[in-house]
């Protein structure tokens, strides 16, 4: 059995593969959004002066970053029913990916917030801002600039990592490829197509990411982003997709 172009082309336009790819996209987006929310709360908790509160956040981050996502997914989907907690495939996949993402994003968020100069806190406080106002008006808008590039990379990672959900039979792109491969044994062609789909998604995201980053990469001087973008010589986002 050698390489078959007709099979390859058939898989390339297969609605089944496209559906899998679409699942990968929405699964990644939904997990990311929930993960960011979780990570945001965890980061603020971790920075709390209350030891219990920061301890809880620290435990969560430690536990989830210190264990493989694959193990987490299997525990959620196959292990929890033993305790009477039964989650469907989709719920398990989203929960696993989101809670895992939250642990990583919490650290990104925290480093973004701590990167803001201490004097900004003093100035905000001295003007009578509460913690909440200070965060809203002064700290988070500045932290965003530090957070956006790694956050973009996290989503890029998520598009690929979501393939792990195939082990709990989530019908995303990899699982679709696996199932096609089992029917016709055109393994190389099928997985090649899957790889191309992944590459298309990550490349497309690379373009989006570049635009977002150049928006946030502006110096704080009110000039438009085009001028700032033109100033930059090397664009790290452009090489990012290729290097992974």
């Amino acid at each position: 059995m050698t390489w078959s172009w007709p099979d390859f082309l058939e898989y390339l336009v297969s609605p089944y593969m496209m559906r899998g790819a679409w699942t990968t996209v929405w699964l990644s987006v939904v997990s990311m959004v929930i993960g960011i929310s979780l990570g945001f709360v965890a980061a603020l908790m971790k920075m709390s002066h209350n030891r219990v509160v920061s301890g809880i956040a620290g435990f969560y981050i430690w536990l989830w970053r210190g264990t493989p996502l694959l193990v987490q997914l299997v525990i959620i989907y196959a292990g929890l029913p033993q305790l009477g907690i039964r989650l469907g495939v989709i719920e398990s996949a989203i929960l696993g990916l989101a809670v895992n993402e939250g642990a990583y994003f919490a650290e990104i968020m925290r480093s973004g917030i701590t990167a803001v100069d201490k004097g900004q806190h003093d100035a905000a406080r001295a003007l009578g801002m509460t913690y909440r106002k200070m965060m809203q008006i002064v700290i988070l808008p500045q932290a965003t600039r530090v957070i956006v590039p790694p956050l973009g990379n996290q989503f890029l990672g998520m598009l690929k990592t979501s393939s792990l959900a195939s082990v709990i039979s989530m019908e995303e792109l990899l699982r679709s490829a696996q199932q096609l491969a089992q029917i016709e044994f055109r393994v190389l062609e099928v997985y090649f197509v899957a790889a191309i789909y992944y590459l298309a998604m990550t490349t497309a995201w690379g373009f989006v990411q570049r635009r977002i980053e150049s928006h946030y990469d502006r110096p704080f001087d009110g000039r438009d982003s085009a001028a700032a973008a033109a100033q930059r010589t090397v664009d790290p986002a452009a090489t990012e997709v290729i290097s992974r």
Binding site: D117, G119, Q120, D122, A123, I137, F220
Partner: peptide, 8 residues
């Protein structure tokens, strides 16, 4: 403040 601490 000595360092101004304006919001950049």
């Amino acid at each position: 403040f000595q360092q101004f601490n304006l919001f950049p």
